[in-house]
Nucleic acid binder design. Structure first.
Lengths: 328, 328
DNA sequence: CTGTTAGCGCATTCAA
DNA sequence: TTGAATGCGCTAACAG
């Protein structure tokens, strides 16, 4: 492993017997160059194992052809799925997508935004950690570069937004459940997340609107552990049957797992629904859930990022996926 | 949203009435500065909303205080868990961890390595896509910066490696299964992944050594969909009972889901074991699995990255987690 | 303790 | 078409 000083354009120019300007033109292909010279330059570049220094390039140009994505937590399968689709959406383009995990911390999120801004990214995609307290990070980003909020948003910012209509998603769940059976016989409990993020907030509002303001709501976080605990609380209250509307698939999966381990039947005793549409194939019974069109959302982000348009908000329509945790 | 030209150190220096060198010293805190001047500088920086340009800084210095992580696929929960723990391990340090998803493509993986190298990262962490065909990417990385392979490795490269002992992990599974019951009555099938990655390769070798070379092996990929299909094939062969040793938790979860949907009992008819130790709380019965010490592995990576030591390989010891998919 | 100077690597003027 | 010169923003030597 030889770690000698990396070759620069000046080295290549010297070996090829040309100027650095010519090397730059050959390697970037921006301008016509004499074929014979071009040949000499590329040969010299290969021989010296030349690799461009993007710091120098980025410093000289305005653009770095880079987009940063700051997300709250990679372990949340919905976020990692979003990240994966976004990466794929950018795979064919010239721009590199770089990711940074905020580890569910506001301070780390802000650090990630600062880091990307310092690296002169062309655009920033943010899944804000908190509906209100991420305002500083979002505002900072939006004041410097094209910024798009994904899935979650901070109200009052000028940044664009791409997400799903949570109200429509919950309505799909409600219509499905009411069509299939009598909700009075299987009373509804909402297993949600504390309204720290806009998605948790909107889903909570939507279930209150859709199922009645006096709906039983248990609020925790987006995790399977919370799903298990919430289901345990439902059973502890004495319920022997019911309908558990969950704010996320991970919550629903945890809830189902606990119900089954407690000897309850799903969907006979308890019906359960999820939200997001990720990882439905992992469990049995498979989850009835609201699928978000993540691929289309990722492409919308990509288009928004390269466009020159003003900030805009776009809500995608979710679809219902009927699984084995609710009556067919 | 004012997008005027960002302030530079020269702007701050002008407003504060000092030289750029003083601004640099104040803002980076590298040298003692007259308190009164420092005050003027910070005030000017705040007033101009100054933010450092890391491209200029990185170009001037040798180091960028950045580590890149290139991983094959974010949707694989083991990789995203690894990424999350790595992010957390770096959260307290001065260096930023940036992620890049190769989308399971060799070309994209190489692009990610090139991109990070061009950005002058101080170190690179790689989870190679392919045991042989990622050799170019790993070699390129290792020839330029401190490089650590994680979880998967490419034999013959000089880069360091951090992973788990797959042989020990499979041995834990075998000992557990043989201690609990008669394997002849519940014949073993291995639901594995094609040996494209070192982890898939090593686990396949380990089960052949541990359970006999004539063991039935079904090889696909690391996905729940494959787990479902493989379980379907086992049932199609006429088996009514058996032991399914899986190469990953996602495979095991898919297999269990299919078995249950086909009316088989787990663990009475079929026992199932996983590998990795991620997402065991998502399913019922909970998975019996081999847990990888991801937190310790992430810290080892961090220490390896900042150290000046030569390349080294480190295998961590896995532990068995007994769940509900195998006899207690 | 502070300012001046120089240069990291690159792409683009401007002249030839 | 090509080369020489310039400057992107920053920090480190050096001299004061």
């Amino acid at each position: 492993v030889s770690r000698s000083r990396p070759a620069t354009m000046a080295d290549v120019a010297r070996l090829a017997g040309v100027s650095t300007a010519t090397v730059s033109r050959v390697l970037s292909g921006t301008r016509a160059v004499d074929p014979e010279m071009a040949e000499r330059v590329t040969a010299a570049a290969v021989r010296l194992d030349y690799r461009i220094n993007l710091l120098g390039r980025g410093l000289r140009l305005t653009s770095t052809s880079t987009v940063g994505l700051v997300l709250p937590d990679l372990r949340n399968p919905f976020f990692s799925t979003l990240g994966q689709h976004l990466a794929r959406a950018f795979a064919d383009s010239e721009v590199d997508l770089l990711l940074f995990s905020a580890d569910d911390s506001l301070a780390t999120e802000l650090r990630g935004v600062r880091s990307f801004l310092g690296r002169q990214v062309d655009a920033l995609v943010l899944i804000p950690v908190h509906e209100e307290r991420s305002a500083e990070a979002v505002a900072l980003a939006a004041s410097s570069v094209r910024t798009v909020q994904l899935d979650r948003r901070v109200p009052g910012t000028t940044a664009s937004y791409v997400g799903v209509s949570n109200r429509d998603g919950i309505a799909l769940v409600r219509d499905h459940l009411t069509a299939a059976a009598d909700l009075d016989a299987q009373p509804v409990t909402y297993l949600g997340a504390a309204p720290d993020s806009s998605s948790a907030h909107e889903r909570l509002d939507a279930v209150r609107r859709g199922f009645g303001a006096d709906l039983d709501c248990l609020l925790g976080d987006f995790s399977a552990a919370w799903g298990r605990e919430a289901a345990a609380r439902v059973l502890a209250s004495g319920a022997t049957r019911g309908t558990l509307v969950c704010a996320a698939d991970v919550i629903a999966a945890g809830a189902v797992a606990h119900l089954l381990s407690a000897g309850r039947r799903v969907p006979e005793d308890f019906r359960v629904t999820g939200f997001d549409g990720v990882g439905a194939e992992l469990t049995h019974p498979s989850l009835t859930t609201v699928r978000q069109p993540v691929e289309a959302m990722a492409e919308a982000i990509r288009d928004l990022v390269v466009s020159e348009e003003d900030a805009s908000a776009r809500w995608f329509g979710p679809t219902l996926v009927v699984g084995g945790t609710s009556p067919a």
